[in-house]
Design a protein around this nucleic acid. Structure first.
Lengths: 142, 142
DNA sequence: GTTCATACTAACATTTATGTACGTACTTAC
DNA sequence: GTAAGTACGTACATAAATGTTAGTATGAAC
């Protein structure tokens, strides 16, 4: 059954006052979606080192398709985190860089990313112990 | 027109050495996926305040379905970030809490969430200026 | 001439995340 | 008796993210 998602939260005002991310229709969830999207995270981190062109970015961010890179960049640009600079030259030339706002976001995201990377041994250990890791087929044996 | 020259990738290994999140098949991407998933973020933040039961969590995290809450909790539990404690009593009673690892993760995630909430005015301003925000139909007028 | 590179967009296909509805097994409250 | 609460699992359906392929317009390299 449905628990009313937006009841009158008199007692829950705590969550609402310190920011309403926990309540259903907060616009910040949209930004969160862009920033924490699969490629959003990586694009922000990649751009922290400086300006990059589209295809440089594509090569830097392993596995991203052109379509998703373009899409992600449009999201971040729309949120004012990334600045797109286009040069009107014959072979197209476009540069992407972080805005001041984007630099702030990238920093928080990178802290999280660094933590994950640094904690992978502990997490992987838990995977092994609990058998919960990603299912990897052992190709060496049937 | 002054086009800055290509930034030299002083070492592609740079990205690889400080952690390989930017390279395609890094296991940390799996953890990132769980932690930055739509509900993963909110569950971690909600549990920072302390232990919660399933339905408490569901009420706290606005808009989450039972299915996705269970799924998200299994992800986080599998990564060793959340601890599930089950009491074998007649009406089921299960408690969820952060592990020490989970507390670390939740902190980074909350910093990001707080930043987003605090930056919403600037972001929304950019939305308005560029017309890039989420398409919200104005229900008050046609 | 062919090919490559650039920075994309559009169409289409697929995978994944997420939602909805229902069932469980039992208790308490009405 | 009915209804509701608990903590889910399962089946099904949809929405969203993501991938794949093809195409654009031009110049440079071959």
């Amino acid at each position: 059954m449905n628990i009313p998602s937006d009841p009158k939260p008199q007692g829950l005002s705590d969550a609402l006052m310190r920011g309403d991310l926990l309540s259903a229709k907060c616009p910040s969830r949209e930004v969160m979606k862009h920033v924490t999207s699969r490629w959003g995270v990586l694009v922000l981190i990649a751009l922290e080192h400086g300006t990059l062109r589209f295809s440089q970015l594509r090569r830097r961010v392993g596995g991203v398709s052109e379509r998703m890179l373009a899409q992600t960049l449009r999201w971040l640009e729309g949120d004012g985190l990334v600045l797109r600079v286009e040069y009107d030259v014959v072979p197209p030339h476009v540069e992407y860089q972080l805005t001041p706002l984007g630099r702030e976001a990238a920093e928080k995201v990178r802290v999280l990313a660094d933590w994950i990377e640094g904690s992978m041994p502990r997490i992987a250990a838990h995977w092994a112990e609990a058998g919960t890791g990603p299912q990897v087929e052992d190709a060496t044996q049937a």
